[in-house]
Design a protein around this nucleic acid. Sequence first.
RNA 1: GGCCCAGUAGUUCAGUUGGUUUAGAACGCCAGCCUGUCACGCUGGAGGCCGAGGGUUCGAGUCCCUUCUGGGUCGCCA
Length: 591
Amino acid sequence: MGEKIKRTHHCGSLTLENTGDDVVLAGWVQTRRDLGGLIFVDLRDRSGMVQVVFSPEYNRQAFEKASEIRSEFVLAVKGRVFKRPEENVNPKIPTGEIEVFADELEILNTAKTPPFPIEDDIKVDESLRLKYRYLDLRRPSMLHNMTFRHKVNKAIRDFLDENGFIEIETPMLTRSTPEGARDFLVPSRLNPGTFYALPQSPQLFKQILMVAGIERYYQITRCFRDEDLRADRQPEFTQLDIEMSFVDVDDVISLNERLIKYVVERTTGRTVEIPFRRITYGEAMEIYGSDKPDTRFGLEMVDVTDIALKTEFKVFSEAARSGGKVKGINIKNSAGLFSRRQIDELVEKAKEFGAKGLAWISLSSEGIKSPIAKFFAREVMEELLERMGAQPGDFLVFVADSDPRLVVTSMGQLRLHLGRHLNLIDKNALNFLWVVEFPLLEWDEEEQRYVAMHHPFTSPMDEDLDLLEEDPGRVRAKAYDLVLNGTELGGGSIRIHRTELQERMFKVLGFTQERAWNNFGFLLRAFEYGTPPHGGIAYGLDRMIMLLLGLNSIRDCIAFPKTQNAACLMTEAPAQVEPRQLKELHIQVTI
RNA sequence: GGCCCAGUAGUUCAGUUGGUUUAGAACGCCAGCCUGUCACGCUGGAGGCCGAGGGUUCGAGUCCCUUCUGGGUCGCCA
């Protein structure tokens, strides 16, 4: 901007109180309305928009120059603020009561016609928005998302700073470790044939920081996982990573409740009640069929396996007898909603979700309608209806299978489908929920061994320690996930801090001592030098911001996101490199 | 890796069982006119390798195959 013309005010900040002020504005041209003898320009900067008037009577020179103006030109305008006459007030914009008469115009830059309009609620293909992301980010809603994200980051830092945490950066170039997601690898030029891995999370470093006596650490940092993308998943994403020493599960949970309350109330103005509800993993699976239940609606699952044993209906009784389960959901007051055809569709859905079938009982005004009723003795049916809390008008669905896990997971998905389909979800609710007491290990069919459900450094619960060798699958962990509206926001655990327990853990995971030291030697060595009890949590920050903003995709709160093919449409990364670069790295491309 | 959806002016879309001229509309863009517009208005104009390649056919935007791109989802994501 030239010497003589320097910004004094922001477009969106002008009000009636500025009437009569001489101002200099700078910004982009939202629209130009050329009436021939009078030109209106809506000038936009980060703060908002204001109408600038170019009139030959006010300043002929500026007026004549204004005919060159086009959309998205960058202008500096010197002028005076006037109150608009009553009939010219525009109630649709915040600055609609005033306008700026221009007496000097400087065109700081011209612009090509943008490929899509710079305004909210545009219908345009997302790939075009991503290619021209700098234009997309000019749209007020995207600017708002970026600003909100900044506020969340700031609130997090304010709270954690006040609570004695220090932010420490950990390396981006680190070593690949087994288990977990696929790593992004970076070749080392100075050490031919070796590779760094980009961190999947700062997990090991933050534990070492506890050994280092930091006591309270946090970091807002990028993490990398080379897995397929989703609406809520990018290959590079941001974590809020926290670790604390001398704490147990309750300490971590209560600090994090205060953190979440602080951040959400600060950034959204909404009220958050703490403590959050807690539910064990076992309960979550039995009642909701999910380890991240959406508790904004009911449709809770009821176990009727014992009743199923008493029926003539083979699907039920045999599932029950062979170690399986039978579970039902009572969809209250909905018998009238399910026509024969809609029932068929629901059965199809259940099959999509893995169930072998779906039994149903409709309690309409004409009495019980159900293809399975004939297999039930009167008193067994009564017991079933009572267990289900069934009233006239209710519609009951049941899934039975000899595989109990299949029953709960398929029904859990069916529950979500019904919740959405029947519009039972309160879109304004913020239902925070802790899921605790996760299994420490799960059996991996492919590898024929136990693998850590969280990670190999997660501490078992004290009362389950004795089961570690004899029945590893039953050991519960000091692990917790924070769930918001059916989405996992973050998770963490109390870690193992004693060498002998860590060695038992590796043994159960099938690691020889040699392999454990090969992969995690640096951590195990650190643990030998006085490791305090410690634990922490990590949040998916993109996801948290997406949910708080009510977005459908994390791409809308990431400035430069990747597509489903993990490409950046703006920079066209990834791309081929010069043969010389590959040679320096001793890398040969074989495709 | 599997399944599903979508690719036609700059943008958003329409385009009939495959068939009539030169593939349309709206918005945007360009030009002219217009002194109170704010979705400015009026008149006129430019703008298309119908994602790409192959096939079927007398004839393909339309049917078939392959492929690319974008999106959703399952697998995957300690």
